[in-house]
Design a binder for these strands. Structure first.
Lengths: 248, 248
DNA sequence: CATCCGCATTTTGGATACAAAGTTAAGCCG
DNA sequence: CGGCTTAACTTTGTATCCAAAATGCGGATG
């Protein structure tokens, strides 16, 4: 499990996402190997994986470069995620949920409901809400009966802000944030209802709307010169808690 | 370009798809290395790639196994492909086509039109039609303005019968086949029209219908014990011509 | 002074050696 | 005869070495 290659992969990915390696920077096998004090072999597999994840780009004979991820890229990844999650929801509605799946979804909804019922939500609750949200989306994505949906999704899952359950939080406007959480929560409830009634079309449409909501919310905050740098933005929202689930 | 690892990957993939390596068979680094007379290094990268493609499965300490691909799996992959292609078509319609893109699509349509206009189509024309079809789908998928669509698609692209432009052919019933090609062709025409008019919804809906048509056609032929073996089926339709574009 | 040829350095790909972990099987002891 | 232990083999992960390809620089030549 805790192989060296996986460790290298996790460390370098974190470095990229944290901005320690800036977009455009060169990154090579030997460099990474020396940096983390391992041989070139695990460094090599890690770089191959990072390329597949779309975080670095191979330049023919001159190493890899850190890919610059723009806000436009995030929009694109969210749109792909939306249709895939929509398909997952429809498939699950058509096939019917297993009792275990329904229990998981209901637990997730109960969790977020409880959080929203709290009078004065603390910052710490946000992490819990994110966790509940993540469970909801992951359950539908991976238990829908078409495992290729999740398979395809994993190809873009590592891109910042696309990860399942990632909601952008502005910690300075908790009131507004609470409203947003309430909307998201109600959408979860509606989706579960559609799933229970095996209404595939409604489940799909609602899920697509819900997934794209992440996008719309983003647009409220970002002053988009369309190629605005993503990484600072990524650091601004969602702290380590928001990333933990996807980075390790 | 023609690196050894890529060569190993192509060869082993062909072996799997051709049935030379049966589902359930064990496949290891050393085995492949010895088989193709290369070292373990390229064999390892090839196996990693094959696992990402979903053709083999890692069994903890006991090598990989060839995954058994059922008809149900093919249906699943086609459904994923359909929503991704639908998103691509919608995106392209909303963003508008570049003149080059429109030219490519029109050329593809002219090609298939010409083939269908031929009085007595020979078997050889089928390969040309497939090529035109492939160009049409690839153009939309990769030129739509959201490169992540193609990126996600590549994750499932290697699964048999999912590949772009793959249409199943029954060589014994050319008349019926011609009818089918005509339907597909007309759908291409409609999609191009929707793209030109920048009608995203119509482009998406038509493309989804069109992509799923591959699936419906499959169902006409396969006596589905639902877990019917895929590989014989794959060999029955589409000969080497149908696979060439995706395997090398 | 510009251009072209060639060498050196960088970088990757492949081969092999080595070590660790797990699996299988056989033998030994109860 | 059965269960447990151990030993050998399989398999994978990592390190290092070698070779090939490409790039960039520098010198020589027109």
């Amino acid at each position: 499990m805790g192989s060296s290659a996986e460790h290298v992969l996790a460390v370098v990915r974190r470095q990229i996402l944290a901005g320690d390696r800036a977009p455009g920077d060169k990154i090579t096998e030997v460099g990474v190997a020396a940096d983390l004090d391992v041989s070139r072999t695990p460094a090599r597999t890690a770089l191959a994986a990072l390329e597949a994840e779309g975080l670095i780009e191979k330049r023919d004979g001159r190493g890899f470069t850190i890919k610059s991820i723009s806000v436009a890229d995030v929009e694109k990844s969210i749109k792909v995620r939306a249709v895939l999650e929509g398909l997952a929801a429809r498939t699950m509605a058509e096939n019917g949920m297993s009792p275990e799946t329904e229990a998981k979804l209901r637990r997730s909804i109960d969790m977020s409901q409880e959080i929203l019922d709290t009078e004065e939500p603390e910052i710490d609750y946000i992490g819990q809400y994110q966790e509940a949200n993540r469970i909801f989306h992951e359950t539908i994505m991976y238990d829908c009966g078409n495992e290729l949906v999740g398979h395809a999704f994993e190809r873009i899952a590592r891109l910042p802000l696309t990860a399942l359950g990632t909601l952008a939080f502005d910690r300075t406007t908790l009131k507004r944030e609470r409203m947003r959480l309430t909307v998201g929560h109600s959408q979860h409830v509606i989706i579960l209802d559609a799933l229970a009634k095996r209404d595939g079309q409604r489940a799909e449409r609602m899920m697509i709307e819900h997934s794209n909501a992440t996008l719309n919310y983003e647009q409220l905050f970002v002053d988009k010169g369309n190629e605005a740098p993503l990484l600072p933005l990524y650091q601004r929202y969602g702290g380590p808690n928001g990333r933990r689930a996807t980075l390790d």
